[in-house]
Design a protein around this nucleic acid. Structure first.
Lengths: 353, 353
DNA sequence: AGCGGTTGCTAGTTCGTTTTAGCACCGACT
DNA sequence: AGTCGGTGCTAAAACGAACTAGCAACCGCT
């Protein structure tokens, strides 16, 4: 049932040459060692005929490189976003001939260490350590055993590991600018307090988004009309925030700190008979799938998870391949900020028109 | 920077024994070959001291088994559901000492073959072939090179491969029963026509869900009040379907064939000033994340993707491990139907109370 | 002293490949 | 006749662990 693999020895026998000769030819090193054109052809033909494919395990053992990456994430399934990140990494890896082991920790540190060990045991060439849930965390031991890249993890002391992060600061600027450019001045925040001191410790992302927003508002001589710090960024909290805002009148525009808050905001505004964007404009962050399903479509600054995953894999493979070439040269890596693109849909009214 | 691994040879040297002795001891075969307790202890201690971990690549080459699975899916990122399936598989695999290569094809058959080859090259012990998007498809060649399980793929000719599928038929029964038990009689379908001949070729799932629904309705002497076959199960289509239903009056209850349709149904009902569940009851399928976010929460029959992934990995590993033990015994596998649990939220009004 | 039986270990082969070092042959030249 | 330089290939040693076959050493017995 399970067909036996063809080995190099069989190819060599079929071609009437030594194993080493076959290896040289198929490894493209025939020119180096002078193999006659005739012999090369026989080897190629034999390999073709038998359907030879090199055994990657053996190659891995011999070369010490397995063309394999590990992807360790705290969450795989929690959202489409995690999937996007993995997908990006897998695609980039595939394009460069790498396969990816995927592991999920659920935030469990012990599990994380075990996964890392299991991957290192399998001689992965490098590891991507990714996070969606937690920000600001400890790094596991064992990261010194293999090249590594941090994906969506902001740590104070990342050693000299490359880090891939979304450019939340610029995203904050863009969100604010989108409203201001459309002529809005009455801007309320849902998800963070109105001042820098109010961000709580929710996340690095929240802080940066707020910084970007405030920077642009300040540049226009504005400040947030109101702000609400919220611990759980879920629809019910968004709903409640709007009810609170409405006590002091109808807002001109609302910046939601993520799309799920925005969903609650939509529900609340609708329940109060307010229309988006005619009465209230809304802008948000993340570009979760609901953003496109809400009516009207939610304009939101997208977390480019796919691109981030791709970037992480590319950087990691660069390190792996480059490192071999020039062992002591530190690459041009460090923190890689991936731009967050604005997805313009229909939730912002253009007052300037 | 990258720490060198400790090899068995180093452990043996440290313990003052031969490599083979160390291997025997650490492999738990010391009793078979009579190694003195003293020697065993020295080996164990040395291994501990040096932090020895066997090189899985080497073991893989020698044993021909790598404790590695491949997971090939048409989609990884399209939804949380795909992630759940992968997560389930990864977890089950991990519990049994396996790591998982994940690959995504995007429905591309060539890519699928290449991924399969790349995995077989890496000597995976087996492969899970999964699908979310497509139903009823061709199986790739190369599946005869390695044990395999089909996950969420319904094919006519699956050879003797184990198949893991959700129990859509029972789900259809459950959805219908939930409405009927709550006293509903005026039941409209959104996503499928009212009769068996109307299902179109959308999907096997649609057909089975409908079969289940009709079976229960018929058993109560009922038939659907109306039905709408729809090709794209997305919110706008759900919205449109409701507008069409409302032309002939307010429906008592609506069965949506998935949650995204249900989302559109919610929006349309709200826009027409109808309240859920007071005016109209809604039940749906899938349990996508929005199901919990909608207000009121959507009662829906969940696709148990996590469980399915777990089951697939378990079945596959059974095949792998069992196969070694008794080569000619065909396992008790075949089609594995995983129950779809009902997630009761607030979208069905109980008329019988 | 020689033999059989046990105990306790190890040498050596194997898995499939890469890679280095070098062999055998041939013609040309001194 | 001997050396030299090419040419075309191959033997053999890795890589790290698993596993088989078998070798010493000792003990007790005749």
């Amino acid at each position: 049932m399970v067909r036996k693999r063809v080995t190099l020895a069989q190819v060599a026998a079929e071609a009437g040459v030594a194993v080493s000769t076959a290896s040289l030819v198929l490894g493209g090193r025939a020119a180096d060692v002078r193999i006659s054109a005739a012999a090369q052809e026989r080897v190629q033909a034999a390999a073709e005929r038998l359907g030879y494919r090199p055994n990657a395990v053996s190659v891995g053992l011999r070369k010490g490189r397995t063309s394999t990456l590990g992807f360790i994430s705290d969450s795989v399934a929690s959202s489409r976003l995690a999937g996007e990140m993995i997908k990006g990494a897998i695609e980039a890896a595939r394009d460069r001939g790498f396969m990816v082991f995927v592991g999920e920790t659920g935030g469990n540190v012990t599990l994380e260490r075990q996964l890392l060990e299991a991957m290192v045991d399998r001689q992965v060439d490098g590891v991507i350590l990714a996070a969606l849930l937690t920000h600001g965390r400890e790094l596991p031991d064992g990261l010194d055993q293999t090249p590594a890249v941090l994906l969506n993890i902001a740590v104070d002391d990342c050693g000299d590991l490359p880090v891939v992060l979304p450019d939340e600061l610029q995203a904050g600027r863009d969100a604010a600018a989108a409203l201001i450019d459309a002529g809005h001045r009455d801007i309320h925040l849902v998800g963070s307090g109105p001042g820098r001191e109010d961000v709580r410790t929710i996340s690095v992302a929240a802080k940066l988004r707020l910084d970007g927003i405030l920077e642009v508002l300040t540049a226009h001589g504005l400040e947030p009309a109101s702000g609400r710090a919220i611990n759980q960024w879920l629809p019910p909290e968004g709903y409640a925030a709007v009810e609170s805002i409405l006590e002091s009148g109808t807002p001109g525009a609302i910046v939601c700190f993520n799309d799920r808050l925005a969903m609650g905001v939509y529900q609340a505004l609708q329940d109060h008979g307010l229309r988006i964007p005619d009465d209230v404009s809304v802008v948000s962050f993340d570009d979760a799938s609901i953003a496109g399903w809400l009516r009207p479509g939610l304009t939101t600054v997208a977390l480019p998870h796919r691109t981030m995953g791709k970037r992480a894999a590319d950087v990691l493979i660069d390190v792996i391949e480059h490192h071999r070439a020039t062992p002591d040269e530190r690459g041009p890596h460090g923190v890689q900020l991936v731009p967050m693109p604005m997805r313009v849909r229909g939730s912002i009214r253009d007052l300037s028109a």
